[in-house]
């Protein structure tokens, strides 16, 4: 295995009794990379994370994490990876500080690191507060702080911002980008295409247990942007969408000359529309 491949899945599949939840999943993760699994509910995102992090056994295929086959990993692997599952809990009766300090003991992390992480997630002033009294976003920040306390090589996040308000989500995004800067590899799942576009270096579109498309958000958008279109708002409040044809371009030029255009956008497809084109389904249809 190449030195800089932290995680490698080859031909992973998972069957729950009768249901085939994952089919032939292949991917790689490198240091400093944020990789997103984007897919609607039930696509198999959580199943994928659970398999990689050793909480669930795959039916077939091979997963290598930090050079070790996932069949041979033991508890010590968690000293080098961080896991935030879709329902990671905190000890609500303990203080914020205690919540982190317990895990600092498990990982033999110095006190100064706890303080550092608390500052990073902006919870320093709440460190003596009972964790159960934190707001939802603060709790999620605490969960994140705990997951990176031991500076893991790879961080796994299952829907890290689902259910959070946009402002808090943005704070979390900023944190993740900072961690990426430090060289941490991040594997996250989401059904939010804006999040995927903004954060991820590479996205795998997951649909019914299959990776139907893979690439950087930009690549994917451009790939499916074959018919160029423009969305134009004219002075008379009329909004129109025009395809790229010589005739339309002339029309647009004419409006512009007459200064009748209020705004004009090129319509590149978003990941949402890429997903729609590939699967015929919208991302958020549940």
């Amino acid at each position: 295995m190449e030195q800089n491949v932290l995680l490698q899945l080859s031909h992973i599949s998972k069957r729950y009794k009768t249901e085939l939840a994952l089919k032939d999943i292949n991917m790689e993760l490198h240091p400093g990379e944020i990789l997103g699994f984007l897919g609607p509910s039930g696509a198999g995102k959580t199943t994928t994370i659970k398999i990689i992090t050793g909480q669930l056994r795959q039916t077939s295929g091979e997963a290598k994490i930090l050079g070790t086959d996932s069949a041979n990993i033991d508890a010590s692997i968690y000293e080098r990876i961080g896991v935030v599952s879709d329902n990671s809990g905190i000890y609500e009766k303990m203080t914020v500080w205690q919540n982190l300090n317990m895990f600092a003991k498990i990982w033999r992390v110095p006190r100064t690191r706890v303080e550092e992480v608390l500052r990073q997630v902006d919870l320093s002033e709440h460190s003596k507060k009972q964790a159960g009294k934190l707001s939802k976003g603060q709790k999620q920040r605490l969960v994140l702080a705990r997951a990176v306390l031991h500076k893991p090589r790879i961080l796994f996040l299952d829907e890290p911002t689902s259910g959070l308000d946009p402002t808090t989500a943005v704070e979390i995004h900023k944190m993740l980008l900072d961690l990426k800067e430090e060289g941490m590899a991040i594997f996250l799942t989401t059904h939010n295409m804006e999040e995927a576009t903004k954060l991820c270096d590479n996205v795998a579109l997951l649909y019914q247990g299959e990776i139907v498309e893979f690439g950087s958000p930009q690549e994917l958008c451009l790939k499916y942007n074959q018919d160029k279109r423009y969305q134009i708002l004219l002075d008379d409040r009329k909004e129109i969408i025009l395809e790229q044809t010589p005739e339309n371009i002339r029309k647009i030029a004419e409006w512009m000359e007459k200064d009748q255009v209020q705004c004009i956008h090129s319509c590149e497809p978003t990941l949402e529309s890429v997903f729609l084109q590939v699967t015929g389904k919208t991302l958020n249809a549940w």
Binding site: T53, S76, Y78, I106, R146
Partner: peptide, 9 residues
């Protein structure tokens, strides 16, 4: 689950 994914056996 958090404990079990934090290297506790």
């Amino acid at each position: 689950r958090v404990l079990m994914t934090s290297s506790i056996t």
